[in-house]
Amino acid sequence: MSMIDIAALDDIPRQGARVVRTPLGCVAVFRTADDHVFALDDRCPHKGGPLSEGIVHGAQVTCPLHGWVFDMATGSAQGADDGRVVTYAVRSENGRVLLDAAALSGRRAA
């Protein structure tokens, strides 16, 4: 698995997200209050809302458009809603954020 250095951890606000543009569309990279990072497609399976703009609470994010809640580790919708967001391997190391490049290079689409 080849990991690409995409940003400094501090570029992402705690309990917030930044967007990475990829050939497969935008990926939201989240940082929790305790500095865990998660990467998910920036697209809610419900109506396409940008998850990167949701409120981050614990290891969950709430979509800003209609309030669907996702577990960021698995990408699964919580509660009564049914759906799943694609997740990507990501980790923080020495203050940098590393994202799995292979899954995002466009090859996966083939």
Binding site: I4, I6, R18, V19, V20, R21, V29, A101
Partner: peptide, 10 residues
Amino acid sequence: APVADLTLRA
């Protein structure tokens, strides 16, 4: 803006 743009890298 996006924090990184991997479309350019591709």
